[in-house]
Nucleic acid binder design. Structure first.
Lengths: 108, 108
DNA sequence: CCAAACCATAACCATACGGTTATGCGTTGT
DNA sequence: ACAACGCATAACCGTATGGTTATGGTTTGG
């Protein structure tokens, strides 16, 4: 099922440091681990571990280039969580019917 | 900031048992702790603790009636998480700009 | 009135989690 | 060649988390 993916996404987003890393990748685009560590407020190994969790949720991708590892955000991976909100967020359904079509496009 | 609320919501949704409880409340409406325990797959105290977490995130409300405690879903509380997705889900913004205006109505 | 029902809290336990420092391995500049 | 860099992994640690059983306080049915 898709809810299995949603689990990884929700779990990944539950940590503020992880969200901050994801946010930086969304705003600034591709980033090396070194660059991310500078703003993360935690050690480099901690950043690496967070990136592993984000990658498991498919929220980030990486591109190895020599000794550098470039990570980028994959916001499409939010889709499972968004789909869950669609199904169980009555508020969402009421006011954002248009979203339905959007999410269907995402499924495939 | 609103992100503080988003933290509680994301944290609450990170656990599958908690999501299941929320789902049941959304689908079946108001429910007692006893009724929720029947389908939760965990003990009654566990359900009570999950409900406490959900309540902290304002995802549920409760109404004491004699010895029974009736809980109900408050899907509006998903809004902070939805807003976060709006801000950092570039995929959505790109292809579904219309969503932005709608979400702004949500903020207030 | 008294036993049973409903629920929350307490006390406890194993494990997961987020963080650290230490290390090691490939890569790169000089 | 080799020192320095970039990153991941290992080893470790304190605390949070999710679960359990035990308990106790109201409330209710008979």
């Amino acid at each position: 099922m898709k809810s299995a993916e949603a689990q990884h996404v929700f779990r990944a987003l539950a940590d503020p440091t992880r969200r901050a890393i994801f946010e930086e990748l969304v705003r600034k685009g591709e980033r090396t681990v070194h660059a991310l560590t500078a703003n993360a407020g935690v050690s480099q190994p901690a950043v690496s571990k967070h990136l592993t969790v984000l990658k498991r949720a498919k929220l980030v991708g990486n591109r190895r280039e020599g000794r550098e590892n470039h990570y980028c955000a994959r916001p499409e991976a939010l889709a499972p969580a968004a789909a869950w909100m669609k199904d169980f967020g009555a508020f969402w359904n009421e006011r954002f019917d248009r979203l339905e079509a959007v999410l269907e496009g995402m499924e495939k």
